[in-house]
């Protein structure tokens, strides 16, 4: 049986980690390789690097970062943030990223998903969906682009289905309402998307305690991503995995072979 994955997310800017865990043993907490290896030792199942560099110049360092991480890390990792073209995606995959995350560019040109999936297979084409709950009696969610700032008029479940039809191998689903709140993943949204598509769904946005991860898994998420709780040391990967395992969820834990 597949285990449920815990995916710490690291924000990077200009090739440096600006939001990662505060591991005490690190000499250079801004070094993506040191951060990545520390997370690997701590039991993370996968990592996600989100490039938040605003300038193109700073973005150029991303490929070099991916090359260094790929050489040193022995768990899979995804890279996202500002991937605009199939060439951007190809450069990251060639540099050693296991998955490339597409968001705004896929919304403006959905054929990009198919083109990226053709490069190395759909397992490398991850589509990130930032969704915000709409008012009304039946729950529904609208997809936002540009880092969650612009409404697109697309409904999240329909967009997830379309993305998968076009070749997405995974959906990284962020609740804009919950992101950064620590109030828990949006379980209803997770359930709605996970039950609509055959691919794994990575729940994101709102993690505050270990039980929140278990709730996301119970709602059908194959993986759960968090940045803030790991960054500020509120939670360790071990705490999260222990709690999920205690609740009977299949986890890659303990790590001993």
């Amino acid at each position: 049986m597949l285990t449920r994955r815990i995916v710490p997310c690291l924000d990077v800017k200009g090739g440096r980690v600006v939001k990662g865990v505060r591991f005490e043993e690190l000499r250079d907490a801004g070094d993506p390789v040191e951060q990545a290896r520390a997370y690997g030792r701590a039991g993370a199942d996968e990592l996600c690097f989100l490039d938040i560099s605003a300038s193109l110049e700073a973005r150029g360092t991303l490929v070099a970062l991916v090359e260094r991480v790929a050489r040193e890390l022995s768990i899979p990792f995804a890279v996202g943030g500002g991937v605009r073209t199939v060439q951007d995606a190809e450069a990251l995959l060639r540099a050693g990223a296991d998955k490339v995350s597409l968001n705004t560019a896929a919304l403006s040109d959905p054929s990009l998903i198919t083109a990226v999936a053709r490069l190395t297979g759909s397992q490398s084409a991850l589509v990130a969906i930032d969704a915000k709950r709409l008012g009304g009696p039946t729950p529904s969610w609208e997809v936002y682009s540009h880092g969650g700032t612009r409404p697109t008029g697309r409904e999240a479940v329909a967009w997830a289905r379309e993305a998968v039809d076009r070749g997405a191998g995974e959906i990284l689903l962020t609740s804009i309402d919950r992101d950064g709140t620590g109030a828990g993943f949006e379980v209803e949204l997770t359930r709605a998307i996970a039950s609509a598509v055959p691919v794994p769904v990575i729940a994101s946005g709102g993690a505050g305690n270990p039980a929140h991860f278990a709730d996301a898994f119970a709602a059908g998420a194959a993986a759960a991503l968090a940045a803030t709780v790991f960054h500020f040391g509120t939670l360790s990967v071990a705490q999260v995995k222990e709690e999920c395992a205690r609740r009977g969820l299949p986890m890659r834990w303990p790590l001993e072979e």
């Binding site: 597949l2 285990t3 055959p198 691919v199 794994p200 993986a223």
Partner: peptide
């Protein structure tokens, strides 16, 4: 086959 999670992604 249809009916299981595809792609098969993860640890076991």
């Amino acid at each position: 086959p249809a009916g299981v999670q595809v792609p098969h992604i993860g640890w076991q």
